[in-house]
C-alpha cells in the first residue's frame, strides 16, 4: 500500500504552524479515515449522526462506571455474588451497555492479587472503563506482565508481600476481565458513593490499589 505522507515542515498551507495536539498535517491514514467514513455514509451503511452518537457513547464511558460496580460489590453481598458469577449480566442489570463481550470479575483478597493484560492485542473492558490507557497497549506491558508481573506491579508502585499470590488474566477479543480490588481498611462507615471515589482505573486493571480512605 502506498504510504505517501505529505511533508509540510510543520507549517500549514496558509503558512501557520500547526498546533501540536490534533491539527497536524493530513496524514495518509487520516485521509483514509475520512474517505472510508464518507463512502459508508454515501452508501447508506451509516450516517454522520450515528457516528457522532457512537463517539459520544464511547466518550461517556469512564472508570467511574467501573468504580460504581466495585463500590456496589463492596456494599451489597447479593450483587457481589451475582457479579462474580456472571459479570456481564450483573453489570447489564445496573444499566451498563456491556455489548456482546463476556465480562469476568476477579476479586482481590488479602492472599490474592489479580492483574489483567492482553498479550495478543489490546482487549480491555472498554464498555465499562472506557478506552484503555496507552500503556496497556504497549509491547512492554503486554510482554512482561505474564512473565514478571511483580516487577511490572512494582513499576506501577504496587509492592506486594511475597506471600500474596499474583494471578495474571490474559484477555481475548471475546472475554474481558475487571479486577474487583479489596475494600480498603477503615472504610466501614462509608456508603457506596463515597467508596466509588476511592476506586481508580488502575485498581480495576490490577496495576493499582484503591485510594486510601484516610485521604478523604
Amino acid at each position: 500500500m502506498p504510504h505517501d505522507h505529505p511533508h509540510d515542515n510543520g507549517v500549514s498551507a496558509s503558512g501557520h504552524p500547526y498546533r501540536t495536539d490534533n491539527d497536524g498535517a493530513l496524514s495518509y491514514w487520516q485521509c483514509m479515515e475520512i474517505a472510508v467514513r464518507e463512502l459508508l455514509v454515501e452508501k447508506g451503511v451509516t450516517t454522520s449522526s450515528e457516528i457522532a452518537r457512537q463517539i459520544e457513547a464511547m466518550d461517556a464511558r469512564s472508570p467511574s462506571d467501573g468504580a460504581k460496580v466495585v463500590a456496589r460489590a463492596w456494599t451489597d453481598p447479593d450483587f457481589r455474588r451475582d457479579l462474580l458469577a456472571d459479570a456481564s449480566e450483573a453489570t447489564r442489570k445496573m444499566g451498563f451497555d456491556i455489548g456482546p463481550m463476556k465480562l469476568i470479575a476477579v476479586e482481590n483478597t488479602p492472599q490474592l492479587h489479580n492483574i489483567i493484560v492482553c498479550t495478543l492485542c489490546s482487549c480491555y473492558p472498554r464498555n465499562l472503563l472506557g478506552l484503555p490507557p496507552d500503556w496497556y497497549k504497549t509491547r512492554a506491558y503486554r510482554s512482561r506482565t505474564v512473565r514478571e508481573p511483580r516487577s511490572v506491579l512494582a513499576e506501577f508502585g504496587v509492592l506486594l508481600p511475597p506471600d500474596v499470590e499474583v494471578r495474571v488474566h490474559d484477555s481475548t477479543a471475546d472475554m474481558r476481565y475487571i479486577v474487583i480490588p479489596a475494600r480498603p481498611e477503615g472504610t466501614e462507615h462509608m456508603d457506596a458513593d463515597a467508596l466509588a471515589a476511592l476506586v481508580t482505573r488502575d485498581s480495576m486493571i490490577g496495576t493499582g490499589l484503591p485510594l486510601d480512605a484516610a485521604a478523604f
Partner: peptide, 11 residues
C-alpha cells in the same frame, strides 16, 4: 507478545 523480553513500560 506474552513473555517476550521488553523494557520499562512507557506510561
Amino acid at each position: 507478545m506474552g513473555g517476550d523480553e521488553a523494557g520499562t513500560i512507557d506510561i
